[in-house]
Design a protein around this nucleic acid. Sequence first.
DNA 1: ATAAGGCTTCCAGTTACTGGAAGGTCAAGG
DNA 2: CCTTGACCTTCCAGTAACTGGAAGCCTTAT
Lengths: 134, 134
Amino acid sequence: MNIGQAAEHTGLSAKTIRYYEDIDLVTPARRRDNGYRDYVERDIHMLRFVARARDLGFSVEDCRVLLALYDDKGRKSADVKEIALRRVADIDEKIEALKGMRATLAHLAEKCHGDDRPDCPILDEFAEGGSERI
Amino acid sequence: MNIGQAAEHTGLSAKTIRYYEDIDLVTPARRRDNGYRDYVERDIHMLRFVARARDLGFSVEDCRVLLALYDDKGRKSADVKEIALRRVADIDEKIEALKGMRATLAHLAEKCHGDDRPDCPILDEFAEGGSERI
DNA sequence: ATAAGGCTTCCAGTTACTGGAAGGTCAAGG
DNA sequence: CCTTGACCTTCCAGTAACTGGAAGCCTTAT
């Protein structure tokens, strides 16, 4: 399977797949006589594994650890769980912060006339600088 | 106020403040005779605004737009309102995406034994059900 | 006078790709 | 057989948004 097909099967771009090989995140694909990379089922699995983890917000370095753990017969599921739970906590924090920003912006937008008059409570609040919220 | 104090007041690093000046995101601070940057209230508020927006996932380019509107005396409050409302929609989207991610991770972590046993549903899920070795 | 720490600039590195140039390969059509 | 276009290859650069470090000047305190 060429890199193009591998890309289709994994949802990654060919560029990204080459990049992952380049940084030794995944084991290099076999080469055919013409120099083309040749992907087999196992390669696709590994790439999909990475694609999914990345999609869930794991860093490439996290993926490196996860792949090592997955490949390691003696790995502890506790290690993996800890990584996942740390990500959950990160996400919770981010969600809370976004909710705060959303409330501020929605509130200001509501107070804003939305006409052509130049005064705007959103920017006024910034100009006055009295508030830590925009 | 030196850049160090400005950093403390805004939660940004001195490096970051210089960087923001470098890319013309904020107006350059006045220089004192010794060449040191001198920050006044207005600078601090501008930096805080940027810091908060950046913290919540707004790009530097987003910040540039908001700051430009602030500087433009002829701006229409409708413009600002529109940007604010678009950001609110962006934030809602982001929150939803994060919630989805959180749900998946939390679910997987819950199913994970978290002991030393080698089988781990998180990794199994990443591999998309395959018990096959990667 | 000297040491510690803050300030300056500039250059390089980071993360995770992405784009593009220059060129080799392959299958189909004329 | 030749061409066309879609692949593939490598390598070099650039992106966002900083961050680290070197070299050197400035300030403050002892």
